[in-house]
């Protein structure tokens, strides 16, 4: 597997086979690549050091000094919960949609139309999150009010349904987040699906498979790693989304399973944006930075899980 990407031995591949040739191009290229990698690591170490330095007062402070007055866990716990709930709702909605849209563009729509449609979707990635926030409050919120009110009347027995219905509920936030992460997920999926080797597809069709069978046999297995990568990029964005959540979500509860009412837990990123400007006290500021650190780890765990899933299926990707 890994042998294929190995450079050929210089002597064997070089036109002048007599003496070993040192190619400056190769050296420069390898150097540049390594330097870029190292630089990213250095930046990250810098950010991590900065975060720890800023969060330290909260980590060592007396629980009563921390924001909320009951210790770090008390303050950050509901935020982690809220972050996960919002991101999960977004992912549940966006994951099948993004695959469907990407398939439609790559394998169903006529080629000209597909290009135009792909373009429209990409355009959405350009909309700043403030706009998604305002649009969510004024369009999506009222639109979902009917469904939420109906659910509260008829599905009250479900633990996550409860009144009064609110256009600023967790469900609305999750739906808007789903729309926000659709473009990046769709774009990755689309590119991956388009890269499916033509031969695999034709082989499948030649054996008499229907279009769906061909997709299931050739396209989806080939794209699995890419689909998961795209989902993780989307999830990362949903976890870290700040302004849209801050504008839409009505935050006035701690842990609650209910996603249709105005009493919701906050999310980490939105909480930082909402509380940072007026956080007056040293330890309070540090608490917010510490919650940022937690978001870091949440993202990390999510990504590690995704990497693990992808690595189990590595045989299907092209390069390794």
């Amino acid at each position: 597997m890994s042998t294929t990407a190995q450079p050929p031995a210089p002597t064997a591949a070089s036109p002048t086979a007599d003496k070993p040739v040192v190619r400056p191009g190769d050296k420069i290229f390898a150097g540049l690549s390594t330097a870029s990698g190292v630089m990213i690591l250095v930046t990250l170490v810098g950010v991590a050091a900065f975060l720890l330095w800023q969060a330290w007062p909260a980590l060592v402070a007396d629980p009563s000094e921390v924001r909320g007055g009951n210790g770090l866990l008390w303050y950050i716990g509901p935020l982690v919960y809220g972050t996960l709930v919002a991101a999960l709702i977004a992912l549940i909605i966006a994951f099948p949609l993004s695959i469907g849209i990407a398939l439609f563009i790559s394998h169903y729509a006529p080629r000209k139309l597909a290009a135009a449609l792909g373009y429209v979707i990409d355009l959405l990635a350009a909309v700043p999150s403030v706009v998604f926030g305002l649009w969510g409050v004024s369009v999506i919120g009222p639109m979902l009010m009917g469904i939420q009110a109906w659910s509260i009347d008829n599905l009250q027995f479900l633990p996550f349904i409860g009144g009064p219905a609110s256009p600023k509920s967790m469900l609305v936030t999750g739906a808007v987040l789903a729309i926000m992460i659709l473009p990046i997920m769709t774009a990755v999926n689309r590119e991956v699906f388009l890269q499916t080797p033509r031969l695999h597809e034709e082989a499948s069709l030649a054996l008499g498979a229907t279009r769906w069978e061909m997709i299931r046999q050739a396209v989806l297995p080939f794209g699995r790693s890419g689909i998961i990568s795209g989902a993780m990029l989307g999830l990362g964005r949903a976890l870290g989304e700040t302004m849209a959540v801050a504008i839409i979500l009505s935050i006035s509860a701690r842990y609650t399973p209910v996603v249709t009412s105005p009493a919701n837990p906050g999310t980490i990123a939105a909480d930082i944006a909402l509380q940072f400007p007026e956080a007056s006290h040293g330890a309070h500021l540090a608490t917010l930075v510490a919650s940022g650190l937690v978001l870091f780890f949440v993202t990390l765990i999510v990504n590690m899980a995704a990497r693990y899933i992808v690595s189990r299926r590595a045989a299907f990707s092209g390069a390794n």
Binding site: L44, F50, L51, T242, V289, F296
Partner: peptide, 19 residues
């Protein structure tokens, strides 16, 4: 690098600014 690039996607934007 793979690991830390993943971590970097989780940096809240305001933190990047403060950094």
């Amino acid at each position: 690098l793979t690991f830390f690039v993943d971590v970097m996607t989780g940096i809240p934007s305001i933190v990047a600014g403060l950094f």
